[in-house]
């Protein structure tokens, strides 16, 4: 459903992405894995057309994207930022319903959708009337996820959604995410640098370093048949503490 061809992107003189080509399969959870600064978040921004590649093209459902389609594409794409990206001057529920409200959804329709999402994201209903500042990191991510899912998007993008959470909250949310992804059967693209998280959540892994894709495939393949010395290094650098006991 989404095809990136020979994409190169640089901020000024810094080359962030170098000749990236990949295709995302419908209904599959794809993990973009790599160290900090490898260009994985930039890839998501390109897919949302928040930035433009200097070289290469992006196709959605087999057609190139025209300027006038960009807003529609964004509205059909859910996006969860690392810190939630919630607007501080709106309550949690207003953050979630903002766009639906602008698109003219009735109050009943919004409420009904909220009910579904609150249950799905396992958010305490009482928190909906609170402002983002008073919520915990995990709660903010759940609200961010609800906002991304409000319009029932075709594609869900998550940029290090669990990156700033402490380990226990993180594990909780990982489990919840996995069940949500399984339940919704959406096309998901999730960025992380955590190997365990990638292995737990992903059907397909894309390992990146320094602006290039080094290997794409199931985690098993990456472990058993690394395509590049960096793949081996990256996988072995993240061994568990248990090995030291």
């Amino acid at each position: 459903m989404l095809e990136l061809r020979n994409i190169s992107f640089s901020y000024g003189s810094i080359q962030v992405l170098n000749d990236i080509s990949l295709s995302i399969r419908k209904g599959c959870t794809t993990i973009i894995l790599g160290p900090s600064g490898c260009g994985k978040s930039t890839l998501l921004k390109l897919i949302l057309h928040l930035i433009r590649p200097q070289l290469g093209s992006i196709e959605v459902d087999g057609a190139p994207v025209a300027e006038k389609d960009i807003r529609a594409i964004r509205q059909r794409t859910g996006y969860v930022l690392q810190d939630g990206g919630l607007f501080p001057h709106f309550t949690a529920s207003r953050n979630v319903t903002l766009l639906a409200n602008e698109l003219g959804w009735t109050e009943e329709k919004q409420q009904a959708r909220m009910e579904v999402l609150t249950a799905l994201a396992r958010l305490d209903k009482g928190l909906l009337s609170k402002f983002p500042r008073t919520l915990s990191g995990g709660q903010r991510q759940r609200v961010g996820l609800m906002r991304a899912l409000m319009l029932d998007p075709d594609l869900l993008l998550l940029d290090e959604p669990l990156g700033s959470l402490d380990p226990l909250v993180r594990v909780d949310l990982q489990q919840d995410l996995k069940s949500i992804f399984g339940e919704l059967k959406k096309t998901v693209l999730l960025v992380t640098h955590d190997l365990g998280e990638a292995a737990y959540l992903g059907d397909e892994i894309i390992l990146m370093n320094e602006g290039r894709i080094l290997q794409q495939g199931p985690m098993r393949t990456l472990v058993d048949h690394p395509a590049d010395p960096f793949v081996t290094r990256f996988i072995h650098a993240q061994r568990t503490f248990l090995e030291h006991l």
Binding site: L50, R74, T77, L81, G85, L98, R147
Partner: peptide
Amino acid sequence: ASLSESADSLGLSWWQ
């Protein structure tokens, strides 16, 4: 910048 990006990514028009 993250809030501005967050607003853009929702697909809001410039006026919204």
